[in-house]
Design a protein around this nucleic acid. Structure first.
Lengths: 194, 194
DNA sequence: ATAAACATGTAAACAGTTACATGATTCT
DNA sequence: AGAATCATGTAACTGTTTACATGTTTAT
């Protein structure tokens, strides 16, 4: 999958491994992330398969860059992948796995975990909104753009933001529900004791 | 991570690899999935590490089962894991990666992809809601339960359902937005032509 | 001086999917 | 007779993370 993200990025313009790695901290981070230790070997493999062509570009004072460009074969591969109908990805959610097992820890510990998780998602949401503000400053009203690249990027950003908001709302709801559950249990015990 | 899912399931009662695999088609499927080819080797590893104990249980007519039970060490490991504060998982979303590249395919193909994806999520949502109905039939009003295990399970189910609904709503919104984008582009061209 | 950014790689471990492989029992 | 379910494994491949490893340039 990483290779398709790389092909899409190189479709815009040739980039080095280092440049690509920085791109994975930008707009694409909403739905894909990659470390340099995964990027460099993948670029080599893709070059061997004829999807990319590499060129060493020396720079007077700075280290020489190895710049990769997409080949016609790479273009065809990317477009063929876009036309496939993929299956649904299976969900892997560590927080929900923990939540499923929270009956094994004290109630306060469960609350602390949920609050911590909510804070992390709130931070990520703020980051996404900052990126959106940035795009708005540069391009004006995003949903009225005439640029297809920006248009699709804005749609993915919207999905990322909606996803974070849903997660945060769930955390808040779960904390309220848990409080109600604890109150109920306490009253139950009081009743039995009294 | 799989091991903690297994430990949680074995905390309730001892199970064979085959039983565990079926559990991964039940309530836990909302946030974790595992194939038998991953389960069997993992069980062996966990037994070697002293987290589980195995017992061969022969059955008059059916194949002998190898039933695993959680050990005190396994219990401690599970509880220690529950008290850790994990980092946010990085998002990996194939559909959004595709969407990011949809400027490379014809608009109708992009629409077909989004509709297909919406259908898949709608099916998954129906499946989750069927599971919830089942739980309601068995246990009555789920949010008023006094059983901590059921309580936390219901919270994870709610998150799974909210997640699917957000995704479906995004697909519908994206289709509307894309139609508006296409209309705008057409009017733009008409204007230039006229 | 030293920290941050530029620049590129490898190695080991961990995680997950798909395909291969076998054989009994039960239901239609 | 054939399909479904029970039951357990291995092999090959693909993907991802963390740590190791090195060296330059630029800004403070």
């Amino acid at each position: 999958m990483l290779r398709y993200a790389i092909l899409e990025l190189l479709h815009h313009k040739p980039l080095s491994g280092y440049d690509l790695r920085r791109r994975f901290g930008g707009s694409i981070v909403f739905f894909w992330k990659a470390n340099h230790s995964q990027i460099y070997p993948e670029l080599k493999r893709m070059e061997n398969e004829g999807l990319l062509s590499a060129k060493r570009v020396p720079h007077e004072w700075r280290p020489t860059k190895k710049v990769y460009a997409i080949t016609p074969k790479g273009q065809r591969d990317l477009e063929a992948w876009l036309r496939r109908r993929p299956k649904l990805q299976s969900v892997k959610d560590e927080m929900m796995l923990r939540c499923f097992a929270f009956h094994l820890v004290p109630a306060d510990e469960a609350d602390a975990q949920i609050r911590h998780h909510r804070d992390l998602h709130e931070e990520r949401l703020r980051h996404y909104i900052a990126i959106r503000k940035d795009l708005e400053r540069k391009h004006g009203r995003l949903l009225e753009t005439a640029d297809p690249i920006l248009f699709w990027n804005v749609l993915t950003l919207r999905q990322a933001i909606a996803h974070e908001r849903t997660y945060i709302a769930w955390c808040r709801w779960a904390l309220r529900r848990h409080q109600a559950f604890r109150d109920r249990m306490e009253r139950g015990h009081a009743h039995l004791a009294g």
